[in-house]
Amino acid sequence: MERKDWPLWEVFVRSKAGLSHKHSGSLHAPDAEMAISNARDVYTRRSEGVSIWVVESKHIHSTLETDSESMFDPNEDKIYRHPTFYDIPDEVGHM
């Protein structure tokens, strides 16, 4: 049987001005305009947002679990990237 399902979209909602868009969930829609309308009706029914992004799910690329050790673990010991790595005498004040 032919698949006639509308494509899947990912919905990102900015909860208030100044914040970034955050993933809210997914939905089906025939095109971007309807995806935005549907996102408004599905994901902002309780005033959860002031702006919506939608992107078709197939356009999202992600890292793989099997890569995660080499992708993320190496940064755990790079403590020199954090301010607490450096000794500054208290007399200098806040820096």
Partner: peptide
């Protein structure tokens, strides 16, 4: 006719 539309029309 579709779940999303059900929600929208009820709005």
């Amino acid at each position: 006719p579709e779940l999303e539309e059900d929600i929208a029309i009820i709005n």
